[in-house]
Amino acid sequence: MQTTQDSTSLQTRAPVALFALAAGVLITNQFAPQTLVGLIGETYNLPSSYGGLVAMITLLGYAAGLLFLVPLADLVENRRLVLQMLVAAALSAVGVVFAPNAPALFFLMFVLGAGSSAIQVLVPTAAAMTEPAHRGRVIGDIMSGLLVGILLSRPIASFLAGTWGWKSFYVFSAVSTTLLGLLLALKLPKRLPAAPIAYPALIASMWHLFTRQPVLRDRAISAAIVMAGFNFFWTTIAYVLQAEPFSLSQKGIALFALFGAGGALITPLVGRLADKGHGLRVTHIAHATLIVGFVVAAISGLSTSLPASLLIVGLGISALLLDMGVLGNHTVGRYMINLLNPEARGRINGIFVGVFFIGGAIGSALSGVLWSLGGWGAVCAGGVVLGLLACVARK
């Protein structure tokens, strides 16, 4: 999409570090609740089966923002849109701190997730501010900020919760989002759509893209299934680590969550392999890695004959394998959808990421049900099934 701002924005390079920081900070809102479900449940007297709902609601809000708010970038001035979404996110984070009951909490977390989808408005803005020869690198750098935010969200939330209580994370969210808004108000240029179309037509075009682009549809569904499995693990692992024989505190859970961060190291390799035409092979390996990760998680979380220190190392290895499987699948999927219609790249990205996060939201919700029905064994069995389904869904 060309805009009235493109010709002048190239005179100033995009503040890539700021955009990457914004992506990393905002995305923490989606995954932090996974380690806070137990503490939030205690505050509002929620049964354990509601843990999945606590972890799901912000992801669902983010997906709704991707599908219904981010397309507004093709209709209205982008700088104003980003700042309005950040204001909504900051205010809703403050509201979470003072939420009087569970329904109010869920509503505010949903709004927080939707406001955080401003990340995906920043990406085309950065592209418009960058010379064509460097746009791929700039977008990749911003996405790396997003990835780091996903991987660090759980340890940050656990550390803050263990030090000052779970609400301290949302104080952090409100303050950091406000500061980001002030910085972006200074750095973002105005960016107007050149030929905006009616909002209903824009949304309808996204549905047509999803149904008429088989690569987009298959990769999005595959990514959603894998993301559901990812959230199976991370939504319920806190229950395992807090119980015997581990008995970890929130700070201990924060340190454990760092195990998965090593998965980020594979993304450059995956990208290079995809460039060389090995995307399908990498996808199969990613799905197999996910399945193996859940098998290792089941053995480590259910065994009673091995020392706790050895079992927690096993759980850490399973976390690393799961993150590698998800990131491998997601990186190849991103590469393949970006080979599709360049004129609809923004909407294609919104569809892919939106479906991806819907899968994560469903996974978070189902994980609570599986935990209440069969504990850790049921969660891991469900993860193996999802890994197999992902193999079938990816054509």
Rank of each mutant, 00 (worst) to 15 (best):
V226R: 04
L290P: 03
D74I: 00
A128D: 13
V96C: 14
L366Y: 11
P103N: 05
L36K: 03
I197L: 14
L290D: 05
L186V: 14
N29D: 10
L183H: 02
L373G: 00
A288G: 01
L182R: 03
G136L: 05
F110E: 06
S117G: 01
S176L: 12
A55F: 00
A127Y: 06
L269W: 15
A104I: 15
A89Y: 02
A264P: 04
L60W: 03
T12K: 14
F294T: 07
L306R: 07
V384F: 09
P103S: 08
E343G: 03
A194R: 11
A17T: 05
G41T: 02
E244T: 14
T211S: 14
D218A: 14
A32E: 01
S305F: 06
G229A: 15
R347P: 03
V326E: 06
I27C: 09
S318P: 01
D275G: 09
L340E: 13
I266D: 04
A73T: 07
A254Y: 00
N231C: 15
L112F: 05
S144N: 11
N338G: 09
V87E: 02
I221T: 09
K251S: 14
Y170D: 06
A93V: 04
L202K: 12
T58M: 09
G51D: 03
G279R: 04
G115R: 09
L340T: 06
P100W: 04
V76E: 03
G252I: 03
A201H: 12
N341H: 12
L108W: 08
V379P: 09
N329V: 05
L340F: 06
L202W: 03
A220D: 08
V87R: 02
G52P: 08
I351T: 03
A102L: 09
